[in-house]
Nucleic acid binder design. Structure first.
Lengths: 232, 232
DNA sequence: TCTATCATGTAACCAGTTACATGATTTT
DNA sequence: AAAATCATGTAACTGGTTACATGATAGA
């Protein structure tokens, strides 16, 4: 990922909005709001003026005029600049065309789930599952309703989010079942870990196993373009 | 989401590691590395000492001894405290049991895709699709290989990540196809937007449409527990 | 001998968040 | 008359990143 001078999603949204027409900060926010973009873009409107200033400082947008209506505070109208257009295009191309590894919190939690008792984990997964099922049903309904009145083009973010949430639902359901049924390979070890604890030697054994597995794995790997391992 | 005193994933990983046994920072890092946790947790080892200090400042871990081997620098061994255990448990419960809305970059990009020319978007989606197909195939292979030597319990994060990536692949393939075939509802408008541009009135019309749709939608919604809207 | 890496830390810096300040206008 | 909200901004703060500094030991 190229490191951008102004890198937060609100900045991208501002650039995108200004690419339509010059505008002043408050109205940019209104536009984003009315289009419901906060649902799919992490936006903190409190940072709006900070971000706009930063975009200006970097020459991606520029002041084109300051107007005043009655005695209300002056409003500064900004326009996107040439470099701004370029940045927008480049940034969007990167986001759409290249999949960047991200770290959803749930993945983090799964990676550390071993520290919790398996029964507790099962309870929590069931809870998550209930939430997922409920929210996904609601989202499906909402999407259908919207599809009746808006061109699908305006709803792709929502469709994507739903598709991902549904995949998570399926995954969690499967995982919960395989814990409940006891069929999950490694479950006994997990249980005993929380009943008696593990001696340092047992821990070491586990880690050696992991290391051997990693070695085994890189051996079996038929050299792909996957050689990012040597990068700093 | 309860706002945590120390809130970054590395801190969680440190707590989790110390919940096994007291340890010193460097070895915590080694452990996390050897278990391959960086693949599923966003870890910046450069921040390790900063994070450890912060955890200590908040009473979640504490110094238990400082040992020295030969003339090597002293190493401070930390242990998790009572409050630290509590925090770890609570944090993990939240991450596993409650789905928090996150904002993957691709979703952001899709929400703003309108600013790019549809043909360009199609090209980019194809590019992403190729990457996804290739990476997912590799990941599937790797998982299978690991499954032969490690208990499945150790691989759930990987399975989750793969499941999500596969869902994305399916979604992107579908989206690309519906653009290519021209079947995507709204495509004409999108095209003309990039050929001739839109007049201010047309923009306004679009936004009004969105607003009416939103109104329509909230009307149709049968009041669920979904009332987070009124929260601060 | 020179380099790598083991191992620990400090300090400057920065993007972005929070909280505050201001005052006009519109709504209740 | 009070409350809400329109509209703009500033300033302090903070979590975390980056970069640097140190020196020992092990391996080439």
């Amino acid at each position: 990922m190229t490191t951008r001078k102004v890198g937060n999603p609100l900045a991208l949204a501002v650039l995108a909005t200004l690419s339509e027409a010059p505008n002043h900060p408050y109205d940019i926010a209104q536009l984003l709001r009315s289009r419901g973009k906060e649902q799919s873009i992490k936006i903190n409107y409190g940072s709006l003026y900070t971000v706009v200033r930063s975009l200006e400082r970097h020459g991606l947008i520029e002041e084109v005029s300051t107007e005043r209506e009655g005695l209300r505070p002056e409003r500064t109208v900004y326009a996107i600049t040439g470099p701004g257009r370029e940045e927008l295009h480049d940034w969007m191309s990167e986001l759409l065309g290249i999949r960047q590894k991200e770290y959803p919190q749930f993945e983090t939690a799964l990676a550390l789930a071993g520290v919790m008792h398996p029964d507790k984990v099962l309870t929590l997964l069931d809870k998550r599952l209930a939430q997922l099922a409920q929210e996904n049903a609601a989202a499906r309904e909402e999407l259908t309703r919207y599809l009746a009145i808006l061109p699908r083009l305006f709803l792709i973010e929502g469709e994507y989010a739903l598709a991902m949430a549904e995949a998570e639902e399926t995954f969690v359901r499967g995982l919960a079942e395989s814990i409940r049924s006891g069929e999950l390979n490694g479950l006994d070890g997990w249980r005993s870990l929380h009943k008696t604890g593990l001696s340092p030697e047992q821990w070491k054994q586990l880690d050696d196993m992991a290391k051997r597995a990693a070695a085994e794995n890189s051996k079996g790997r038929t050299r792909t373009t996957h050689d990012n391992s040597t990068s700093t």
